[in-house]
């Protein structure tokens, strides 16, 4: 297995040149594998797995049947290599990824309601108040209703 990896790497260097190869290596997150074991494990896991689909954020969904422990045969490689979290998986892929359905996200996207279906947004907790969703009645919601029961006098109206 190791020899195939080395072989394909050498092939890629030969075809595209060393500079392009190194850039891709970085973009694909192979450099992050050194400090991030989870990513390394995912990369290793990816070898020989089937790429089922890629969502619109660039997350890659893999499946490997046979020779894999049941329940660990579907996984995602996040497009974001450094600050990834589970909320980056959009709703349509969530079901496939968690074995709720065998339909892939691309198939389920057909069912998305046109009129009121909204874009998936990851959970931005901890990223600052302006990124966080606040419900309609929340104090920090910018469109919050004015609940004051009186109308103040406006000094500009005078004179």
């Amino acid at each position: 297995m190791a020899s195939t990896v080395v072989k394909s790497a050498l092939k890629a260097i030969r075809e595209r040149g060393l500079g392009t190869f190194l850039r891709e290596l970085k973009e694909e997150g192979y450099l992050r594998c050194l400090p991030d074991g989870n990513l390394l494990q995912t990369k290793l896991h990816n070898i020989g797995a089937k790429l089922v689909g890629v969502d619109k954020f660039g997350n890659k969904y893999y499946e490997k049947l046979g020779n894999t422990q049941y329940g660990r045969h579907r996984w995602v490689e996040y497009a974001e290599k450094s600050r990834y979290n589970a909320s980056q998986v959009p709703a349509e892929w969530h079901g496939w990824l968690h074995f709720i359905t065998d339909h892939t996200g691309d198939e389920l996207l057909m069912l998305k309601p046109k009129r009121y279906g909204i874009e998936h947004k990851e959970n931005l907790s901890g990223e600052g108040d302006e990124y966080i969703y606040h419900s309609k009645g929340h104090t920090l919601n910018p469109g919050q209703r004015d609940w004051s029961r009186y109308q103040p006098w406006q000094p500009t109206k005078a004179e």
Binding site: Y150, Q151, P152, W153, A158, E159
Partner: peptide, 19 residues
Amino acid sequence: GLKRQRLNDPMIRGADGRF
């Protein structure tokens, strides 16, 4: 009338005539 035109903050008229 108790809910309209209420004064709710102390105000001072500035030099420009605005409160």
